[in-house]
Design a protein around this nucleic acid. Structure first.
Lengths: 229, 229
DNA sequence: TGTCTTAGTGTACCAAACACACTACCATTC
DNA sequence: GAATGGTAGTGTGTTTGGTACACTAAGACA
């Protein structure tokens, strides 16, 4: 059972900041801890890295184990390793951030967590460890990256009206965008395919639905195109 | 002497990609290993993180111990943690990149290293571990970041002619820039202060020397200015 | 049939990006 | 001291993309 080394080793964990978006808000997935330290506090999903798995695999595994979410867009964010960030022992945490289509992911609490829930980023509870710092860092990254990589689509359903895409950008960038300029620019890129479908069950004129044209993006990127909004 | 844990722990190291620039080239600082594994191979300076120091402190300490360099611009790059990247045991490496003024830093080998030397990034030896991957990643980051943060100045001496700054950008971005447009843009930002000095001992017309005006940059940044080249 | 709500569309102006070529200055050499 | 070689330094016109801005169209519902 015990593991012995000649030199001291820190523990290594992965934590994930999972973003989702619904009609109203940008949201983050949190779990409520069922074990000390910080028992009953909300925290980012995450856990210890096993010796035979890569960091990214560990992040995916923990995410699945604790929240039921699989295979999202996942990217390494930053590594947090201040000496006293965990009261138990020296723990170095490699943080990831993930983007998921909120509507397509039912979440459910599992063994290690008392509870799992989506929180609007504008209204968060106090978090365990240094997870508030990690979350802020993830938000900054998202805000920066969404402007020059087409990652916003990961947060939307497969088919979406342009107004929803615009609202997503406005929410994340925290600034209003002009409708005509937004449409002109995004449609001009040639990354959106018209699905020939329209919204259903809305109490007003129905909007066309578009989808992100991934192959077109890869083609354009190869040809030197740079996404920018 | 032995350290015992209930669960297996990986080892954690920091590695640093140190960039410098001389008249001709962008260069990287490497050490020649004096110990197995990869004995006699060139590698990035780095080493094990101590339990009572932060990751950044560890990077600075190792850099100083192995190469004599102190207090450079240092930023976390990425964390590399594939299970078999080190043949001895599971080692997770938090990589940093640093920018230094090459001319102002005499380097010297110390105990752990057989040798220390600057290599042009265009002409590198084969490296130990996955250090080639780390170095490529650092180059990508540098290339991306230098366009929207004024970090290029960290690589130049305190006083420099505009032509040297331009050559630095051309080297890192790997593309030629128009002299007039470059000067217009960079001078128009108001980040460069004229030192009222000129080059000495050159075999042609001497150029004015400028310095990066850090307080001006902070002021402008606060007012919403964004560096971009 | 009127009202409400969101979808969808075009143009004029301004600012920044880009392309482009010559003169000025200094040191060295003959 | 004249000529040469090498880098410093300078301005304009064109094009492109960013930004500001207001009305009509469609469909649901009362």
């Amino acid at each position: 059972m015990p593991y012995t080394y000649e030199h001291p080793h820190p523990a290594v964990t992965v934590d994930a900041v999972v973003f989702g978006c619904d009609d109203a808000d940008l949201k983050v997935l949190l779990i409520q801890r069922d074990l000390p330290p910080f028992r009953h506090r909300w925290a980012l999903p995450g856990g210890f890295v096993r010796l035979d798995e890569s960091l990214e695999d560990a992040a995916r595994r923990e995410l699945h184990e604790e929240t039921g979410i699989t295979a999202p867009y996942l990217e390494q964010l930053y590594t947090f390793g201040q000496p006293r960030r965990d009261p138990r022992e020296r723990v170095i945490s490699v943080a990831y951030y993930a983007l998921v289509k909120l509507s397509e992911h039912a979440v459910h609490a599992t063994s290690d967590a008392l509870n799992v829930a989506w929180f609007p980023v504008a209204d968060l509870p106090s978090l365990a460890f240094d997870h508030e710092e990690i979350l802020e860092s993830a938000l900054r990254r998202l805000k920066g990256k969404i402007r020059y990589e087409p990652i916003g689509f990961e947060l939307l359903p497969g088919k979406f009206p342009l107004s929803e895409l615009q609202r997503l950008y406005e929410t994340i960038l925290e600034q209003p965008l002009d409708k005509r300029n937004f449409r002109k620019k995004i449609l001009g890129m040639g990354l959106l395919a018209d699905t020939e479908e329209i919204q259903q069950d809305v109490a007003h004129r129905a909007a066309r639905l578009y989808r992100f044209d991934e192959p077109a993006y890869r083609r354009l990127k190869k040809a030197g195109f740079n996404f920018e909004l």
